[in-house]
Design a protein around this nucleic acid. Structure first.
Lengths: 128, 128
DNA sequence: TTTCTATTTAAGTGTTTGCTTAAATACATT
DNA sequence: AATGTATTTAAGCAAACACTTAAATAGAAA
């Protein structure tokens, strides 16, 4: 009578329930890491923010005003992107006069560098 | 009279116009690359899709039905994520009977592996 | 103190995202 | 031919995004 390997939502004749359980366990043990990595990738997965991170790494520090000029967009638009990056702990600020300089947070240098290094993978981006 | 270095939107006393122009040129020359990399990061920057990519790499191939079971979400929800990945050329499909197996597209293996390797960067994710 | 300047915050808006449920496809299997 | 199974597509919807313009802050400079 019980012909199918019924797992959850899906009824399928040739499901490999061992494989599915193994994968589920594996994911569960890494859940936290997936959420955190996805957050970082999501922040970097916007052309404006990716450019901001690239520029901050390249130039060491820049103020919202500079970024606005370089990127050709309004200061509030830039500021809102910076806020997201700062809330995530990816960038940090330093005040000098009435200028606020943004830079990549020390602890995030490695992952941001690694993300930006993806830029240089040969043949990595199909459409390129 | 012209006291400021007026660049674009921003009027600021101590703007370094050389730096700003250099950065602008640099960005312009890499514009295409930024857009494409941001696209990939944006796709990977979702916990569900990041898990899907991880699973496809780990298990070589999986069908929407398996993924639905493993991820604990409906088949249409999974299918829509797979469509995005396929439209971007990141995954490919192979038919076997009435099952459709998804796997990471050969040309995208490297960048996807590199993205997933970010998972293993020690101290890379501040909150971790 | 008053005025500027750099930045942030707020409010409004159109677009995109990611799910839901229901329906449609496309084939295998009987 | 009729039924069943795996998958995709469609429609609807609440939430998140990314910008805009205007206003609010904070602090330097005059």
């Amino acid at each position: 009578m019980l012909k199918y390997e019924v797992m959850n939502t899906c009824i399928r004749v040739f499901a490999d329930s061992d494989q599915i359980n193994r994968c589920r366990e594996d994911l569960k043990s890494k859940e936290e890491g997936f959420l955190e990595l996805a957050d970082v990738l999501n922040l970097a997965g916007n052309a404006v923010r990716l450019k901001i991170l690239y520029l901050l790494k390249q130039e060491n520090e820049l103020c919202p005003c500079d970024l606005s000029d370089i990127l050709g967009m309004t200061v509030p638009a830039v500021s809102q992107h910076l806020k997201k990056l700062k809330d995530a702990g990816i960038v940090t600020t330093k005040k000098s006069g009435q200028t606020i300089f943004y830079s990549v947070e020390a602890q995030s240098q490695r992952i941001i560098s690694s993300v930006l290094d993806l830029f240089n993978l040969p043949n990595s981006i199909p459409a390129l």
